[in-house]
């Protein structure tokens, strides 16, 4: 039985004159946890947007969760994919609280003209408990710290009951303690759900230890991919980033 949930063949994406992805091919199997690393501008985020249907291919083909992405509406697909971006700048006066923000996660699947059911509201409460911010449920979303905000973002994605989990620099711009807590939470979720997960980061120190495969991107291409043990080597990383890079000790110890 074919376990492939993502298949991308020779994908090219461009934003006006800038080519963001150049001939990327990738297969991801159900339940895999994949880390994607590379310098800024390597095409990591663009790759995620191709997977959730927001990035338009100018060449190549892609199938995600059995649907071929052919330039039509990707709304049905996005309902099945959880997406967490890095902490964004947010107006502290925004009139929406944490619980309402997390509930937005189920709006896509609910569809127009339907209100969240009691069961869905209970799911929101359970997920808020799970990510450790149940006590903040009534707090305005703009009053959260960076770490709390990311927990809310992860909770919102989980309420969506996704089949694929895309994490785009979820630990960027938050302090180290919060980074560690968020990474532990992401790993816990994967261990419990075995959800197919793609984790993008440019910071090697924030690479989850449960990565089964690492994809190294540079200049809009997949430069190399393989097991973390084979990729997290000084000579490989130095070539990837174009500068001498040493493997952070906390990461080296995980994969040694």
């Amino acid at each position: 039985m074919d376990n492939t949930v993502i298949r991308i063949e020779d994908a090219v994406v461009s934003y006006r004159e800038d080519v963001a992805l150049q001939g990327v091919s990738l297969e991801v199997e159900k339940g895999e946890f994949i880390g994607i690393i590379g310098p800024n501008g390597a095409g990591k985020t663009t790759l995620l947007t191709v997977i959730n249907g927001l990035g338009k291919l100018v060449h190549g083909q892609a199938w995600v969760l059995g649907s071929r992405l052919n330039g039509g509406s990707s709304i049905p697909l996005r309902k099945r994919i959880g997406y967490v971006a890095q902490v964004e700048r947010i107006d502290p006066r925004l009139p929406i609280n944490v619980s309402e923000t997390v509930t937005v996660g189920c709006y896509g699947r609910l569809g127009l003209f339907h209100r969240p059911t009691r069961a869905q509201r209970e799911t929101v409460d359970k997920v808020l408990e799970m990510v450790g911010i149940a006590h903040l449920r009534e707090r305005p979303i703009g009053h959260l710290s960076g770490g709390e905000y990311q927990r809310a973002a992860i909770a919102r994605a989980l309420v969506q009951q996704p089949e694929i989990f895309l994490l785009d620099e979820p630990t960027a711009s938050i302090d180290q303690k919060a980074q560690r807590e968020i990474l532990n939470l992401i790993q816990l979720i994967h261990k419990q759900s075995h959800m197919t997960t793609l984790f993008v980061t440019h910071d090697l120190r924030t690479l989850p230890s449960i990565c089964q495969r690492l994809i190294l991107m540079r200049d809009g291409k997949i430069w190399r991919q393989g097991s973390p043990e084979s990729m997290l080597r000084e000579e490989v990383l130095s070539q990837l980033y174009g500068a001498p890079i040493s493997v952070p000790s906390e990461i080296a110890s995980l994969y040694s």
């Binding site: 959730n52 927001l54 709304i75 049905p76 697909l77 996005r78 309902k79 099945r80 994919i81 997406y83 971006a85 964004e88 925004l94 009139p95 929406i96 309402e100 923000t101 937005v104 996660g105 709006y107 896509g108 699947r109 609910l110 127009l112 003209f113 209100r115 969240p116 979303i141 973002a153 919102r156 969506q160």
Partner: peptide
Amino acid sequence: AFYKEIQAVICHRQVALAVGI
């Protein structure tokens, strides 16, 4: 009729897009 979608879009437009609204 569209309160929940409007709330999502005016407060978190990118999130609304990502969840399939």
